[in-house]
């Protein structure tokens, strides 16, 4: 064989090999990536990248529904339609001013009929808050401050950090096989066995253990920015925290256990608020707050 012919054959084989390798990084790549992640050995950064690719907005929404259902099993929902409508208008006003105004199925704000002071952000994106928490707000801007903090948790995807790494590895092993779209009974069972424990992790974090304290403080800082962007008073969060400091029993469970002390949160807010322009809450916002929530605010 002449050198020229050998060169032609080698070149052709190289092209074919390169093409096959590139194809493996496409659909076929998903299989090997999922399997490798499942068998560990990946850095946190690589794992986070894979999760971002495989854990779809739809997956997140359905996990969030399960978490919300668990919270609703513990705290009965309020049937106060006027209060719920108002809550969702304030919430959506913030959403439209936020960096992530669109989610898989939109944001929902749910009022819980409980005197306990508490609020939750379940992925997907559900914000739930109790009447007890509502009573910590003296006007619309302060209510917006509470909701802005919860929205910050959702938009910064803090919920993902509440899920244990071993759950993610199992999820990637199932999602990465490509069989997840085939609807075979085995894959369904596998996914339920993965998504169920993910829901457990999130529920325990939201209701009992709390996020990492640093994430709470980050959510406060983002909330101040969001309040200002929406036209609300950025100082409203500080006022709510001051009221919480008066009302929260530090020895009690719930919110007092899952969040840093209000005094600590206020201290961290000070540098951020130093450059913020205060907004005087107009009478019209105070009036509609009192009108819409008159029943919900009663003891």
């Amino acid at each position: 064989m002449s050198r020229r012919r050998v060169a032609v054959v080698v070149l052709a084989l190289l092209i074919a090999g390169a093409a096959a390798a590139q194809d493996r990084r496409g659909i076929g790549g998903k299989i090997s990536k999922g399997a490798k992640a499942a068998s560990a050995g990946r850095t946190a950064h690589q794992l986070a990248k894979l999760i971002a690719e495989k854990f779809t907005p739809e997956d997140e929404y359905y996990v969030g529904r399960a978490v919300a259902a668990r919270l609703l099993a513990r705290y009965p929902p309020s049937g106060d339609a006027e209060a719920v409508a108002y809550l969702n208008r304030v919430g959506q006003t913030l959403v439209l001013a936020s960096p992530k105004p669109v989610t898989y199925n939109g944001y929902r704000f749910i009022l819980l009929d409980s005197d306990e002071i508490n609020a939750f952000a379940a992925p997907g994106a559900f914000v739930l808050l109790t009447r007890g928490m509502l009573r910590c707000a003296a006007d619309e801007d302060e209510l917006a401050a509470i909701l802005a903090h919860e929205l910050a948790h959702l938009q910064q995807q803090h919920g993902r950090r509440a899920i244990q790494e071993k759950r993610w590895k199992k999820f990637l092993a199932v999602a990465g096989t490509g069989a997840a779209a085939s609807l075979s009974g085995g894959v369904l069972g596998d996914l339920i066995n993965v998504l169920g424990p993910m829901t457990d992790d999130l529920f325990v974090t939201l209701a009992t253990r709390g996020y990492d304290k640093e994430l709470e403080l980050k959510a406060d800082l983002a909330a101040v920015t969001l309040l200002a962007d929406a036209g609300y008073d950025p100082y409203a969060l500080k006022r709510v925290l001051e009221r919480m400091a008066e009302r929260l029993d530090p020895k009690a469970g719930g919110f007092a256990r899952t969040h840093p002390k209000p005094e600590q949160r206020i201290k961290r807010l000070r540098p951020r608020l130093a450059g913020a322009v205060p907004v005087a809450v107009p009478e019209v916002r105070r009036e509609r707050f009192a009108q819409a929530l008159r029943a919900a605010l009663e003891d």
Partner: peptide, 29 residues
């Protein structure tokens, strides 16, 4: 998932913002 009180329309929010003296064109989104 179904009741309109949980899903105000963009028009409703625009009216709500305007009536409450909030910025017409929020900066973030």
């Amino acid at each position: 998932e179904v009741e309109p009180i949980y899903q105000p329309t963009a028009q409703e929010i625009a009216r709500f913002r305007s009536a409450g003296g909030l910025s017409e064109d929020p900066g973030g989104g």
